[in-house]
Design a protein around this nucleic acid. Structure first.
Lengths: 205, 205
DNA sequence: TAGATTGTTAATCGATTAACAATC
DNA sequence: TAGATTGTTAATCGATTAACAATC
């Protein structure tokens, strides 16, 4: 009865709180309140208190939250108090950009490799990486126990690639391909198709 | 009393329906049902019917929805039955990738330019684009009446850039920078920070 | 016609907000 | 102490689902 199920919508906000808190810490701040944090992220103070209180009593009446302490707790809860190996599938422009992305390393991730199925790309060097053959993906993922993949493949290839990833043991997929993909319920998938993201805003123009 | 307010959460699902319908159309299908569409996108049939019915009676009892008709309606509703000029701010790897992105052109968008503030980058050619000076952004946005921008700038620059965009008349911002940004309530912003997206999934590992 | 499927209403479920006692 | 702010409860609000008459 300890493991009460936390709603996905709350989990989804925690990385936003964490990012804002790290920003505050970088600015030299020591404590914050639900009010102040809420103003930073555009969420009500009540909701922030409720979200955080799901995981324990991390604040103090009268003074608020220790930024450093709350950062540590959130990193623990989100399991980003460690470094996860991530692979990138699809060595197009977007794959290149994400393989090089400097923003992962302080946030719990390390790119462990980039894969493609194009014989002309395999073996080529991009930055620190050599593009690997997708045929070797299964062995790599299993040998290194990799759990997270980023897909930057064409829409037509996405389902097939996702199936291979799941087969290899990947449990989290960040999908930039503009297509819905079916995965088993024990695998998490996040969609980040650029055109879909833009289309969410044009209605309001 | 015609303009009842449609919840944001419904608007956010429409591009997903549209993408799935276009996929079906490409496969040569002519009609679909809320049941079938729901299976494609992982949403209940009841919710799809409810969402779509906000905008009119687009289906037929017994037979479902004409895919082509529904595509046209959704494109109209989302205002992507036209081509929007989009600018990219920040000519790093991610900015390059998005400026080159081939997936925009059939989905209502055209990249109209890419800007940076780095004197060493300004004037350089990337594909069809010459990197422009961010100092010229205001004039360009106003002259071409551009409404949409993609930000791929460092976190430290994001608020300042967003202020400039808003000042110039941009109304929709797709933000890849890992930071929260304040914009007036008449400007829409979507966040797409890669590390945050990954952190939404590690909890479940 | 019989079967299928919509659009819509009512019921349920879940998320957010308001309020406040506890307490630092 | 007085002021501030948490954690939590109850109230409100909103979203999802179930069910079904209408009808193609």
């Amino acid at each position: 009865m300890n493991a009460k199920k936390i709603p996905d919508i709350i989990i989804g906000r925690l990385p936003v709180y964490l990012r804002a808190l790290q920003h505050m810490a970088d600015a030299g701040l020591k404590t914050t309140s639900s009010q102040e944090l809420g103003e930073h992220v555009g969420i009500s103070a009540a909701q922030i208190r409720k979200d955080i209180s799901q995981f324990g009593e991390f604040g103090k009446q009268g003074t608020g939250y220790s930024i450093e302490f709350l950062i540590n707790k959130l990193r623990e809860i989100l399991k980003v108090d460690q470094s996860w190996d991530v692979i990138v599938i699809g060595a197009g422009d977007l794959g290149h950009a994400l393989a090089h992305y400097q923003g992962f390393k302080n946030r719990g991730f390390r790119v462990a490799g980039i894969f493609d199925n194009d014989k002309n790309k395999i073996g080529q060097t991009i930055g620190d990486f050599v593009i690997e053959d997708i045929a070797t993906l299964n062995d790599r993922v299993k040998a290194q126990n990799i759990k997270i993949a980023i897909m930057t493949v064409p829409a037509a290839a996405a389902q097939e690639v996702a199936d291979k990833l799941v087969q290899a043991g990947i449990k989290s997929i960040l999908n930039y391909a503009p297509v819905n993909v079916n995965v088993p319920s024990n695998v998490k998938i996040q969609y980040s198709d650029p055109a879909t993201n833009l289309q969410r805003m044009t209605y309001y123009l």
